[in-house]
Structure formats: C-alpha cells, structure tokens
Simulated scan of single mutants.
Amino acid sequence: MAKKQKRVLLALGWYDYRLHQGIEKYAQEHGWHLYADFAREKVIPWGWEGDGILAWLGAGDDLAEFVQTAKRPTVDFSLRRAQLKFPRVLEDHAHAAQLVAEHFLTRGFANFMFYSDADNWSYEERGQGFIKALAQTGHACTWLRWHQSPAFATGREEWKRKRNWLATQMKQATKPLAVFAASDQQALDVLESCERVGIKIPEEVAIVGAENYLLAPDAMQTPISSVDTNLEILGYRGAELLDQ
C-alpha cells in the first residue's frame, strides 16, 4: 500500500520567500502536499483538515486562533506569542547582532547606535544582542527607538515625522558612527535620513541592516550592508521538526 501523502499548511502571518523556499525544498524531498494559498491570499482556511501546520504567528489574532483550534501538529517560526506552547524554530538574533558588532569593531568604530521603529520581539533580541556584544568589549551603545520618541505619530504624518526626527538624531550623533538597524527597511530609513542632511555614507555613518531582504541593494546609489539570518535554512529545519 502506498504511503499516505502528508498534507501541510503554510500559515505564515509574516512572509518571506526564502522561508517558503526552505519549506518547499523539504516538502519536495519528502513528498508532502504543501498548501500555500494563505501565503498569497491571506484568507484563513477555516475548516481545513490536514496533517500539520508551519506557522509564523505574528500580530493577527485570527490566524493564531485558527492554528490553536485546528489541533494539528504545529511548528511556529515566531516568538511573538510565546504563551502558545508550540515547538519553535527561531532566528538566532543574538548571533546575528554579534556578527554585526564584530564587523564594526574590526573597522575601528568607537561610536555605536541601534535603531528600531516598533515594539517587536525580534528587534528587541537584536538590540539586546548588539548592546551585549559591544559591552563585552567595553563599548557603549545608544538605542534609538522611534516608537518611544516624543515625535512619534501614526497616520499620514508618520512617514515625514519619522524621517525628520531620524535626520535630527543622525546629525546630532557623534561621528564616525556605526548604526545597526533592526531590519533592512529601517536601515534604508536611516540611509535616506542621513542623505537628506548631507551626512556621508559610510564615511561618517556606516549602516548595517538585518535579514538581507532588499531585493536589489546593489542597484542603489549607496548600497546597504545586511546580516543574513538564513531564513531558507530556518524553513527547512522547521519542516524537518514537524516531520518528527
């Protein structure tokens, strides 16, 4: 009798094609039927019946409720909902932050900043890891948090206010300055804010982002460096764990 094909649902509240690629690779190697419609359409498949779920449980309460009520073996790639006791495969944010700290230190920087623009568990781990790695070498680091600043606003004014605030912070900072941004998009925010007030990149401010997901960094006039968190490997290992 032929072995029953395993049916696995991708329930990724946060999507990255590399995570999907890693899962897809494992699925092909082991003959899974992978349901990936949610990744494209964001329609929760209430009533779905299968054998397992690979989830990234982010901000959406409906998706978390669906995964809980489905009562299927589940692996979560996020720590956003730590109270849900699913097995997890997570990015090593502390290690990524240490690599960035070492990168800056080998280039002789003595002034450091971490920048984040939202309350996010992965940003917190990266920031804490960066500060800890620098502290071990006797260096201090300023943590710049847009979402906790007096200038913070949401709505139509947010984009403009954030860049004005960032430009002011970058202008006032002691240089040469090494900035680790919590994500590549936030690294781009820092870059654009520096350029608008005439700060030279990377001579005055060096910037590194995280996750390496800018699709065409070399096409930019000033390319951004980024630390790769190996999302494809993460996806493969998550699928492997679900199969145990």
Rank of each mutant, 00 (worst) to 15 (best):
Q169R: 15
T229Y: 11
F180W: 01
L188V: 00
Q172A: 15
R237S: 07
A181N: 03
E232Y: 12
I207G: 01
V227L: 08
P176H: 12
S183W: 10
M220Q: 07
A219M: 10
S193T: 09
A182W: 02
D184W: 00
L234M: 02
A210H: 08
S225Y: 10
I224L: 15
P223G: 00
K162A: 06
R237Q: 15
M220A: 04
D184R: 00
S183T: 14
L177H: 05
V190M: 11
A187L: 04
Q185P: 04
A187M: 04
M220T: 05
C194L: 04
T229A: 07
A167R: 11
Q172K: 13
L234N: 02
S225N: 13
I207T: 01
L166M: 15
N230Y: 04
D189Y: 07
Q221K: 14
G209F: 15
T174K: 08
L188I: 06
D189M: 04
C194V: 06
A216F: 15
G209P: 09
I199C: 11
R161N: 01
D189P: 00
T168Y: 15
S193I: 01
M170R: 03
R161H: 09
A216M: 10
L215W: 14
I207K: 05
A182F: 03
R161D: 03
A181M: 07
G209C: 12
C194T: 00
K200E: 13
A182D: 00
E211K: 14
I207A: 03
V205A: 12
Y236P: 01
E232C: 12
D184F: 00
Q221S: 09
C194Q: 06
